Amino acid sequence: MSEKFADGSWSTGLCDCFSDCPSCCLTLWCPCVSFGRVAEILDKGKTSCCLHGSLFYLLAGFTQLGGCIYAWLYRAKLREVYGIEGHHCTDCLVSFLCLHLSICQEYRELKVRGFDISAGWDGNVQMYTRGVTSAPEVEGGMSR
Rank of each mutant, 00 (worst) to 15 (best):
24 C>K: 03
25 C>M: 13
25 C>F: 12
27 T>R: 00
29 W>D: 03
29 W>T: 10
30 C>M: 14
30 C>N: 10
30 C>H: 09
30 C>E: 07
31 P>S: 12
31 P>A: 11
32 C>G: 08
32 C>S: 11
33 V>P: 09
33 V>Q: 11
34 S>H: 08
35 F>V: 08
35 F>I: 06
37 R>V: 06
38 V>M: 13
38 V>H: 06
38 V>R: 08
39 A>C: 11
40 E>C: 08
40 E>L: 05
41 I>M: 04
42 L>T: 09
42 L>K: 04
42 L>V: 02
42 L>H: 10
43 D>N: 07
43 D>A: 13
44 K>F: 12
44 K>M: 01
44 K>Y: 06
44 K>C: 13
45 G>K: 02
46 K>F: 10
47 T>P: 08
48 S>I: 09
48 S>F: 11
49 C>D: 06
49 C>F: 11
49 C>H: 10
50 C>I: 13
51 L>W: 10
51 L>Y: 09
51 L>H: 12
53 G>H: 03
53 G>R: 06
54 S>E: 13
54 S>I: 15
54 S>C: 15
54 S>N: 14
56 F>H: 09
57 Y>E: 13
58 L>Y: 14
58 L>C: 15
59 L>F: 03
60 A>L: 14
60 A>E: 14
60 A>N: 11
60 A>D: 13
61 G>S: 00
62 F>T: 01
62 F>N: 05
63 T>P: 03
64 Q>I: 15
65 L>D: 07
65 L>N: 00
65 L>G: 04
68 C>S: 03
68 C>A: 08
69 I>K: 05
69 I>G: 05
69 I>W: 12
69 I>R: 03
69 I>A: 07
70 Y>F: 14
71 A>E: 08
71 A>Y: 06
73 L>I: 15
74 Y>T: 01
74 Y>P: 12
74 Y>V: 02
74 Y>M: 11
74 Y>G: 10
74 Y>H: 09
74 Y>S: 01
76 A>H: 12
76 A>T: 12
77 K>N: 06
78 L>N: 06
78 L>D: 07
78 L>A: 01
78 L>G: 05
79 R>T: 02
79 R>H: 08
79 R>L: 01
80 E>R: 14
82 Y>Q: 06
83 G>K: 15
83 G>L: 08
85 E>P: 01
85 E>K: 15
85 E>A: 13
86 G>I: 02
86 G>K: 03
86 G>W: 06
86 G>Y: 02
87 H>W: 07
87 H>T: 13
88 H>S: 15
89 C>H: 15
89 C>I: 15
90 T>Y: 12
90 T>E: 14
90 T>G: 10
90 T>L: 14
91 D>Y: 11
92 C>W: 07
93 L>K: 08
94 V>A: 13
95 S>N: 00
96 F>D: 02
96 F>Q: 06
97 L>N: 00
98 C>Q: 08
98 C>I: 04
98 C>A: 12
99 L>Y: 09
99 L>Q: 09
100 H>M: 06
100 H>D: 04
100 H>K: 10
101 L>W: 00
103 I>T: 00
103 I>A: 00
103 I>V: 08
105 Q>A: 02
106 E>H: 10
107 Y>S: 05
108 R>F: 04
109 E>S: 01
110 L>P: 03
110 L>W: 02
110 L>T: 04
111 K>P: 01
112 V>L: 15
113 R>D: 01
113 R>Y: 02
113 R>M: 05
115 F>M: 07
116 D>K: 09
116 D>S: 14
